[in-house]
């Protein structure tokens, strides 16, 4: 599956410009992490990709045709988990997935539902009414409906929100495995999730793409711009951005990112989170 985002702009009816002429090709197989601060335009981009919105300018192509003209094909191949969603509380987990399977037109739905429940660790809740599930369990039901029928395009907006650490690791593995033959687009605030599984990162900020490349390339771009300071500065210093405060035997150490490290800082190898913070800080400074 190939999707091409070409100079897409999106301005809402209230005048808010969510995306400003972004372009990116999406090809399978790939697991793409879509990261960015709140309001960067991640959810808007995802809604555009699932044809929930139409771009104000530019276009999205599915193969060689505009997405809007291939909406039916898109829907048939799509698994989507929005950031915020509701479930039919009156149904059991199985009934809900059966409902979604029918909407997706999945043949052999029973096997597909059993598989999705097994992969999301919901088999034991098969006959449990959704109204009695916890927040994390509801999130898993959301993920289960997205992966139901093994769609070729999986778009997940903050899928691991509300999950405990063990579940997050399980789902990372699940998404990673799923991405072997499809496009998985994963929007998240948790850089750790992206670092461990994504082969490509797109960083969005204020409606533009700041970075589009592999995690290694992002880390490389931050090389020499991350350092440690042994002591907390007495006053707020200009020129660098503190990304972490660490309690050590020597006291509180600070991890900083800067275009040019101050002399008191000792350069360290950047992590993906450092690289992301460096990029965002640099952009905000502009």
């Amino acid at each position: 599956m190939n999707i091409s985002i070409q100079n897409v702009e999106m301005t809402y009816s209230n005048g808010k410009q969510a995306l400003q002429g972004i372009s990116a090709p999406l090809q399978s197989p790939s697991l793409i992490g879509l990261v960015g601060p709140n309001g960067a335009g991640k959810s808007t981009l995802m809604k555009l990709l699932v044809a929930g919105l139409l771009p104000t300018k530019g276009e999205i192509l599915l193969g060689d045709s505009p997405l809007i003209s291939k909406e039916k094909e898109l829907k048939e191949n799509l698994g989507y988990l929005p950031q915020s969603f509701g479930l039919y509380d009156e149904l059991t987990v199985y009934q809900f997935l059966d409902y979604m399977a029918a909407l997706k037109g999945i043949p052999q739905s029973r096997a597909a539902i059993e598989k999705a429940m097994a992969e999301t660790n919901l088999s034991q809740y098969k006959r449990t009414r959704i109204r009695t599930l916890s927040g994390g369990q509801r999130q898993r039901v959301g993920i289960a409906q997205a992966i139901l029928g093994n769609p070729k395009l999986l778009i997940l907006d903050e899928p691991t929100v509300g999950l405990d650490p063990e579940e997050r690791i399980n789902f990372r593995n699940l998404f990673s495995k799923a991405a072997q033959d499809k496009i998985v687009l994963l929007s998240t605030h948790i850089i750790e999730d992206v670092q461990s599984i994504c082969n490509r990162i797109i960083i969005l900020h204020c409606g533009i793409i700041l970075f589009d490349g592999s995690p290694q390339e992002l880390i490389l771009a931050a090389q020499g711009h991350v350092g440690m300071i042994d002591q907390m500065p007495a006053e707020k210093e200009e020129g660098y951005h503190i990304t972490a405060r660490l309690n050590t035997l020597k006291g509180v150490c600070c991890r900083i990112v800067a275009e040019e490290l101050p002399p008191i800082a000792q350069a360290v190898d950047p992590t993906l989170e450092d690289a992301y913070m460096y990029l965002i800080a640099k952009e905000e400074k502009k």
Partner: peptide, 19 residues
């Protein structure tokens, strides 16, 4: 379906008209 956001799941996989 709109108030409780079920539509955000269903509308992306099937035509709103049909549904």
């Amino acid at each position: 379906v709109y108030r409780k956001e079920m539509a955000s799941l269903t509308d992306t996989i099937v035509s709103t008209l049909m549904l």
